[in-house]
């Protein structure tokens, strides 16, 4: 899964979808995930990156990323899978 190409993100945690005009805000971990997604990382790679950086169980991070991905999908921020 990938973030839609035209989604604008900022360091302060703002997300703007120019296609439909929706705006969002994310907390720091959320901001980081979006940033890594933009870099082209997969969710799996993101999980490893977060586990390295943060004091958290891999299983917890995995569950949270899945949940976050669900939210992104719900907000129409992800590319459709082909």
């Amino acid at each position: 899964m990938k973030l839609r190409r035209n989604i604008a993100t900022s360091e302060s945690g703002f997300v703007f979808n120019p296609t439909n005009g929706d705006s969002f805000s994310t907390n720091p971990v959320g901001t980081e995930i979006l940033f890594l997604l933009k870099e082209g990382m997969s969710f799996r790679e993101i999980k490893d990156a977060l586990v390295n950086r943060y004091d958290a169980e891999p299983s917890v991070v995995e569950k949270d990323i899945d949940d976050f991905a669900l939210a992104l999908k719900g907000f129409n921020l992800l590319e459709y899978e082909s």
Binding site: S12, G13, F14, F16, G21, S23, S25
Partner: peptide
């Protein structure tokens, strides 16, 4: 600009 709106909201 949308930034202003985001600024206020967040």
């Amino acid at each position: 600009d949308v930034e202003k709106f985001q600024q206020v909201s967040a």
